[in-house]
Design a protein around this nucleic acid. Structure first.
Lengths: 214, 214
DNA sequence: GCGCAAACATGCGCGCCACGCAAGTTTCCG
DNA sequence: CGGAAACTTGCGTGGCGCGCATGTTTGCGC
């Protein structure tokens, strides 16, 4: 879709157009998150986000159809990467592949290092405020659901089940997403925060128990 | 909370005030669903819903803070009834109680008989349109999440686990809600529709397998 | 190189929506 | 029966999502 030419290995080259687009999208999403964490959802206007990203207010809606969508974009992308990893990963037992694909996206993030946070406690408090915002909860869960559909498709491929007819791939995908959501929520609930990867390493095998490949 | 006086058995008597409130709420929610199914989400104005329910537009927002919330209200209520049933139900193995509580809410609905549908196929098509509306997907999932919190609390009570410290009750609740969501989605996907209760009877034991009481 | 077509950013404007505020009205309870 | 509390309603406001038209940038074939 957004891969114009593939050189050796998995390196993709974008045209200048798509490069700029990706940058703008990332800038908008990042600005949306930062401002929301700092000020609270209700105190951030679309205008502010656009300004922080260096584009016009109208352009914001060319990338995201709502404030919430922008804030949740990175969450959505992470979910989609899980599905992608599941598709492209090596053969092997289903739940082994799932566990690997999921955990890979919750390692200490390289991208997180690109946006260092000055006051960690203040940041965490802001994030807690953010995720307790009703409008964002729905958006967050919806992002998970979109990723869930992709994961279900990947599971169907791997197991030879039918997306239309069988409940199995959907059940697996929803269990995986549920485990992820629960782990994240628990991570934000605990003090000091328990690493998400540890929680997932505990949760995934448990939900897997009754969902072995049919 | 809304039980003013309890006569014998489980019959609750409301004051005139709460009676009217419940009726208005139900009328608004039902009108919201009906109009959305008939015309599509984007072609229904809050004004229309209020008019259909016989109240002023402003009053709508005294009951629901958005159109989506009104549409999803019955879904939310059903989820909350599951949690309530789980709390008040008889002792016994956890997953037995869960299965009973969930399935009880997905029996051929007595309330559904109160709103007979003339053209069943047209209605089903409208419902499919409705659930594919992005804004409503988020709202729907959020309703599930609210119920999930109540279910988690009920599970913690039954199992003696700690909501704050243990992942277990949250994991169980999220698995249950995930199974319900998946079953409903599959019910809407299949033609002819497979009963939700049948799908749940299949799905719940599977997610239960790895989540036995600790 | 070069020019054209497609993609994109932006300004403008419209309709809708969530909600605060300040009446007016109904219900509750002593 | 009278006052307090709860509820409905009208009005006004700020913000949002998006369609449309216009100017600008990018990509691609020749």
């Amino acid at each position: 879709m957004f891969a114009r030419r593939a050189s050796f290995a998995t390196v993709f080259v974008m045209g200048l157009r798509e490069q700029k687009k990706a940058e703008t999208r990332a800038a908008l999403s990042w600005a949306a998150v930062r401002l929301t964490v700092e000020r609270g959802f209700g105190n951030v206007k679309v205008e502010d986000i656009a300004e922080a990203a260096g584009v016009s207010p109208r352009t914001f809606n060319n990338y995201f159809s709502s404030k919430g969508e922008a804030i949740v974009a990175r969450h959505l992308d992470r979910g989609l990467r899980i599905a992608e990893a599941l598709r492209e990963g090596p053969e092997g037992p289903l739940w082994e592949a799932i566990t690997r694909s999921v955990l890979a996206q919750f390692e200490p993030d390289a991208e997180a290092a690109a946006h260092p946070v000055a006051d960690a406690d203040r940041w965490t408090a802001g994030v807690r405020m953010m995720v307790s915002e009703p409008a964002l909860q729905g958006e967050m869960l919806r992002a998970g659901a979109i990723a869930e559909a992709e994961i279900a498709a990947a599971v169907a491929d791997r197991t030879g089940t039918d997306l239309q007819q069988d409940l199995y791939p959907h059940l697996v995908a929803s269990a995986v997403v549920a485990a992820i959501n629960t782990a994240i929520a628990h991570h934000l609930r605990t003090d000091p925060p328990v690493p998400v990867s540890r929680l997932l390493a505990d949760a995934l095998p448990r939900v897997a128990a009754g969902l072995s490949t049919p």
